[in-house]
C-alpha cells in the first residue's frame, strides 16, 4: 500500500511530492495535468528567486524538479471519489482504484460555470473559459464577456484589439475590476457594458450564435459568435464528500494542513487558506507533506 497519495500536480501537489520523495515515502500522484493553474499565469514577478518568469516556464521547472525523483505519476486521470475507512484512504478515479495510509488533496481550483442552458453544449464551440488561449479565434466577431472582475476585464481588453463588438455582461451594478482596466474598457467604442444583467441562455446550432440576457426584469437577445466566461473559480473539492468545507467548497485546514479527518491533509488553492498565490501553495504543500510524514511515523 502507498504511504501517500497526492491529488493534483500544481505548485502544492508537486512540492508535497518532492518533500515526500525526499522522506522516501512511497508516493502516488494522481493529476489531470502538471503545473495546474500556474500554466495560466502569464507573467510571474513575485516568486522568490525569479524576478520574472512566465507561468509555462515555472510549471516546466516544477515538472523537472518532480522528475528528479522516481515517483509513480498518473497524469490525465480524474478522481471521482475519496473514501476513508478503517484508517485507509481509498481513491477511485476514472481509470482505477488506489489505497494509501495518507492523502494530500491539492486539486486547486477550476473555472466557475454560469450554469445556464447551452453552456455545456457549446463549450469550445463559442463558449470558452480561457480568453488567453482562445481570444484570437474570435477576430472581427461580436462577442460577450461575462463577469466584472479583473479576469473579465483582462479578457475584454485583449478582445478590444481583435473583436468587432464586445458586450460586457455583469450581474453587479458596477464593475469591481481595477479602475485602470475599467477606464480602458469604457474608453473603447467597441465595448458595450451591461450592468445588473444576467445571462439566461446560450444558443446556436453548430456554434454559438447568441445569448439571452435579463436586465431590469426584461429579456434581451444579443447576437454573438463567442462568449467568454470569466466569473472566477471554484475549489475542485467535489470528489471528497466527508471532509469539512466552507460555504464555497474550500476545505478547512489547520496550521498543519490537517483536515477534520485524520490521515487526510489538504494544501493550496483548494483549501480555505486566504492567499491564493503560487508561492503560498508551494509552502502549504511542503507543510502537508511533512504532516503526512509525521502522521505515518506515529502509526
Amino acid at each position: 500500500m502507498n504511504d501517500l497519495i497526492v491529488i493534483g500536480a500544481g505548485p502544492a501537489g508537486i512540492t508535497a511530492s518532492v518533500y515526500a520523495a525526499r522522506k522516501r515515502m512511497n508516493c502516488l500522484i494522481i493529476t489531470g495535468d502538471i503545473g495546474g493553474q500556474t500554466i495560466l499565469s502569464s507573467d510571474i514577478e513575485n516568486y522568490t528567486g525569479y524576478h520574472f518568469i512566465t507561468g509555462v516556464e515555472l510549471a516546466q521547472k516544477f515538472r523537472e524538479h518532480l522528475e528528479q525523483f522516481k515517483l509513480e505519476l498518473k497524469v490525465g486521470d480524474k478522481v471521482n471519489l475519496v473514501k476513508h475507512e478503517d484508517g485507509i484512504v481509498q481513491v477511485r478515479t476514472e481509470k482505477g482504484e488506489y489505497q494509501a495510509k495518507t492523502l494530500i488533496i491539492a486539486s486547486g481550483r477550476i473555472p466557475r460555470k454560469l450554469g445556464v442552458e447551452g453552456e455545456d453544449e457549446f463549450k469550445n464551440r463559442g463558449v470558452t473559459y480561457c480568453a488567453t488561449c482562445d481570444a484570437p479565434l474570435f477576430s472581427e466577431m461580436d462577442v460577450a464577456v461575462v463577469g466584472g472582475g479583473n479576469s473579465a476585464l483582462d479578457a475584454t481588453l485583449q478582445l478590444m484589439k481583435i473583436a468587432n463588438k464586445i458586450y460586457l455582461v455583469d450581474v453587479a451594478d458596477r464593475l469591481r475590476a481595477d479602475p485602470i482596466m475599467v477606464e480602458k474598457a469604457k474608453g473603447s467604442n467597441k465595448v458595450i457594458i451591461y450592468n445588473n444583467a444576467k445571462v439566461k441562455q446560450i444558443s446556436g446550432d453548430k456554434f454559438v450564435q447568441g445569448i439571452k440576457i435579463e436586465r431590469d426584469g426584461k429579456e434581451e437577445d444579443l447576437t454573438v459568435g463567442g462568449i467568454f466566461i470569466e466569473i472566477g473559480s471554484t475549489p475542485a473539492s467535489e470528489f471528497v464528500k466527508d471532509v469539512a468545507k466552507n460555504e464555497t467548497g474550500e476545505i478547512f485546514v489547520n496550521c498543519r494542513c490537517e483536515t477534520n479527518i485524520s490521515g487526510i491533509f489538504a494544501a493550496g488553492d483548494v483549501t480555505d487558506v486566504p492567499a491564493k498565490q503560487i508561492i503560498v501553495a508551494c509552502g502549504e504543500g511542503a507543510k502537508a507533506s511533512l504532516s503526512a510524514f509525521d502522521y505515518i511515523s506515529r502509526l
Binding site: 503545473g35 500554466i39 507561468g55 509555462v56 488567453t132 488561449c133 482562445d134 484570437p136
Partner: peptide, 9 residues
C-alpha cells in the same frame, strides 16, 4: 495562438 500556454506546452 501566440498567447495560449497549452500551445506552448
Amino acid at each position: 495562438t501566440s498567447t495560449c500556454p497549452y500551445c506552448t506546452m
